[in-house]
Each structure stands twice: as structure tokens, then as C-alpha cells.
Nucleic acid binder design. Structure first.
Lengths: 235, 235
DNA sequence: TTGTATGGTTGACCTGGATCAATCGAACGC
DNA sequence: GCGTTCGATTGATCCAGGTCAACCATACAA
């Protein structure tokens, strides 16, 4: 059995994660930088609002949510992150984190000290450009969520959510038609701007229509085309 | 009368815009880079979805909105931008713009070729870091909008919107209690996930309560504290 | 095995904001 | 000046999704 070195150069997420597009030699320089690896138990947080920002984090395995809280306790989930995705970009602008990153299952992350990432990306053009693309992708993703929250109806939102998850699991080599949700109905609701009861009802509706089979957190997508259709032209 | 040189080094927005924090010598190097300046007439677009991305844009004067369209015509306004703010960050990730940037009044912009910005920021650490902060700030701003769309009620959204504008006008040396809205009720509504009638009604309500005085696009904030209070604990 | 806790489902009812429609007002072209 | 157009306001009505409440399912601890 091969020894699994915990280095970017041997990480099977390198095509999704920060190392994307780097040469072998460049990859090794990135390895030096990604010093700290850490396990985060389910329910624990990777960082919290107000903590000093010093590193961004790449998810090696596991599943996270990020959220923002209002003084009166209202929560908005701003995203769900899976292996190969980066966490912590929100902290760059003020040097303090502006949201909470909470693990939804036992997870493992790589910490990338930000100032070192900046110096390395001053030397490696490819890394610099890729990092900019990752940040930009986050902005575009957020626009998509705004669209969802601002203009879509409940079932459209849930369909969009499921299709997005499906596509991201696919990109990671998992089934794109069958997966376990790591988050509760309430967390899905918070992300989608809906109450948990509404999320639950939408799932039941999809099940009745034969679009999906749901049992608690286990989801099978039975008719992806219908879900897509539903998302586009309110039917 | 002093001649107004159109260069970052003499631009009165330099403390808000990309040049922030640069030394005089660094500023001059940025000047070389910002070659193109362009006027955009009210209603015209600076860029549209699908166009090839090659530069980011700094607003010298004027006012813009960015929006995303769904196939069926639904529009989501993703932001309103004013002098000193950057447009086009959405285009980095795919090298194509993913939203439309439309001018809401006669405006003037500086085009900053992106590949040249990347090379310069490989040389000037301060510029690199500031650019990262600007991108991060955009992500954090988007989280705020998600919070607004996902958890706030109509009047809270409008209050948050007005307070945000107020604070940005203030940062630019304009009155923070009295200003003209450049956008229609429909555009405000699209941004806030509301219909124009609801926006109009919320304005009327605020007026009745004495929080604001509104006449068409002219707004005076009479009781900022009440607006803040309304935003925080649903009253 | 049973008790408890947490999360999910479902039903009945209510309401904030959408929808539909009429009217008003400001800006602009002629 | 006067009509036309576009945006804003306001009223009446409707409904998607919120709220409240009961109940069910699963996981885990005793």
C-alpha cells in the first residue's frame, strides 16, 4: 500500500484546489508553505467572527458551513464548502474573520499562511492568477446566491441547491445522483432564505412528483432534467 | 485654475480606490498602467455578460448597477457602484464577464488591464495586498446582501440599503443625510428582493414615521438612529 | 430494552408582500 | 403651451411561505 504523503504534490484534490495548473517544481514550493494540517471535529469551528485572520484554509476532507449572525440571533448560512474548496477569504479585507466556519462532519484542513501565499504568488505567476480566479469565482458564486434569494420561489431554490451539490459531488468523483446531505433542513433553509418546514415540504413535493427520492439526509436525484426545467421556467 | 491631470497620483479618489496605501513612486508606476479612460453615457453598459474580460474598471465619477439575468427575463441587481469603486472582478474567474455593468448616470471610468495589474502587483507588495483586500471586501459585502435577502423583512432591507448608501456618500465627502437616488424603485426592489410597490410603500411608511423625507429620488434621512434600530430588532 | 433528544414531516391557519389596477407627477419632445 | 412617456404612489385583493402545533423517526445513553 502506498504511503499517502500529506502534501499538495501528492494530494488527489490538487486539480480542484489551490495547486491547479502548477508545474511539479512549483507544486513543491507550495508544499513548503502548507505546513499546518488540522482535524476539525463535527460541530467544531475552524474560525469565528472577529478572530484575527492569518491563513486561508483548504479543505482536505469533510464538509463545512459558513454563517453570519445578526445581533438578534438570526442566522444566515452563506455557503457550504466541501473538499478542495477554500475557506477564509472573507478575512483578508479587515484582517479579521467576518463569518464563522463550522464543520458539519469530521474534517481535515490545510492551513496556508496568507502572507506566505502572497509572497509565493509574487514569484509564481500561475499561482497568483489561479488565486485571483478562486476569489473571483467566489464573487460569482455569491451573485448566483443573490439571484436565488432575490428572485426564485421556494421550489426553484431547492432545485438549484440540489443541482449545485450534485455537480460539485460529480467534480469530486462521487455520484452526482445519490448523496448524503451533511446539513439539517434548518441549515438548508437558512442558506436558501426559507424556513425548515418549507424546505421539508418542497422535498416532499419533489418526491411526490418523482423528481427525487429522499429519506432524511439521503437523497437520490431521479429526474435531473425536470429539476432543471423547474428551476428555469416556473412550472 | 489648476489643470486636473487624469492620473491616479492626482486623483482625489486615490484614498478610496486601488492606489490606497501606495508611495508616490509606486503611484507613478500605477499611472502608466491606467492608460484608458472612457466616458459612459447614462443607460449605456460598460460591459455585458459573455464579453471577454481583459480589464477591471475604476469609477472616476458616476454611478453604476451590476445585474444578472435569468433565461426567463428575471433580473437580479447584484450591486450599485459609485466613484472610487471597482467593477469587473466577476470576470477574472472565467475570463468572461458574468454580469452586466450599466451606468445609471453619465460616468467616467479608468480601465486597468488585468494582466498588467497582475504583473505590477507581483512587484509592488502593497498593491498586491490592497487588491486582495478589495476582492475580499466584495465577498464580505455579498455576504451582507445574502443576510439581507435571506433573513430581513422589507422595511429592514430598505433601512439597511439607505444606511449603506449614506455611509458611502459620507466616505466620499458628500452629505450622508441628503442625497439623490440614481436608481429607480424597480432597481432598488430588484437589489433588495422586493417588488417596486413594496419599496414605494416602505418609503411612504418611513416618511409617515418621520424617519426620512422622500420626494421621488431625493432622500433626506431625518432619524438615522431609528433606521438603525429598525434594522436590528424588528420593531 | 427503554427513555430522551434531536431532527424531520405534516396539517391548519395567518400574514407580509406580491399582484393587479387606477391615478398621479415630472421630464421631455414638439 | 400640450401631449406622451416613464416612474412613483396608493388601494384592493390574493397567495406563497411563515407560524404554530402535533407527531414521527432515528440515534444514542442509561
Amino acid at each position: 500500500m502506498a504511503v499517502i504523503k500529506t502534501a499538495c504534490s501528492s494530494c488527489n484534490l490538487r486539480e480542484l484546489c489551490l495547486p491547479y495548473g502548477l508545474s511539479l517544481e512549483e507544486l513543491e514550493r507550495l508544499d513548503d508553505l502548507v505546513s499546518t494540517r488540522r482535524r476539525i471535529k463535527r460541530g467544531d469551528s475552524l474560525y469565528r467572527v472577529g478572530e484575527t485572520f492569518s491563513a486561508i484554509f483548504a479543505i482536505r476532507s469533510g464538509f463545512f458551513k459558513t454563517d453570519v449572525l445578526l445581533e438578534d440571533g438570526r442566522e444566515q448560512v452563506t455557503g457550504f464548502q466541501m473538499a478542495g474548496e477554500l475557506l477564509g477569504l472573507d478575512g483578508i479585507c479587515t484582517e479579521h474573520h467576518t463569518c464563522n466556519a463550522i464543520s458539519l462532519e469530521d474534517s481535515e484542513i490545510c492551513a496556508i499562511p496568507f502572507s506566505r501565499l502572497e509572497s509565493l504568488s509574487r514569484e509564481i505567476h500561475t499561482l497568483q492568477n489561479h488565486f485571483h480566479k478562486v476569489m473571483s469565482r467566489e464573487i460569482v458564486r455569491d451573485h448566483g446566491v443573490m439571484m436565488l434569494l432575490g428572485t426564485m420561489r421556494a421550489e426553484e431554490r431547492l432545485a438549484a441547491f440540489l443541482l449545485n451539490l450534485s455537480q460539485r459531488f460529480k467534480a469530486r468523483g462521487f455520484s452526482h445522483t445519490e448523496f448524503y446531505l451533511r446539513m439539517t433542513r434548518e441549515e438548508i433553509g437558512s442558506y436558501l432564505g426559507l424556513k425548515l418546514e418549507t424546505v421539508s415540504r418542497a422535498f416532499s413535493r419533489f418526491q411526490e412528483e418523482g423528481y427525487v427520492a429522499v429519506q432524511q439526509k439521503h437523497v437520490r436525484l431521479l429526474d435531473i432534467d425536470q429539476l432543471k426545467a423547474l428551476m428555469n421556467h416556473r412550472l
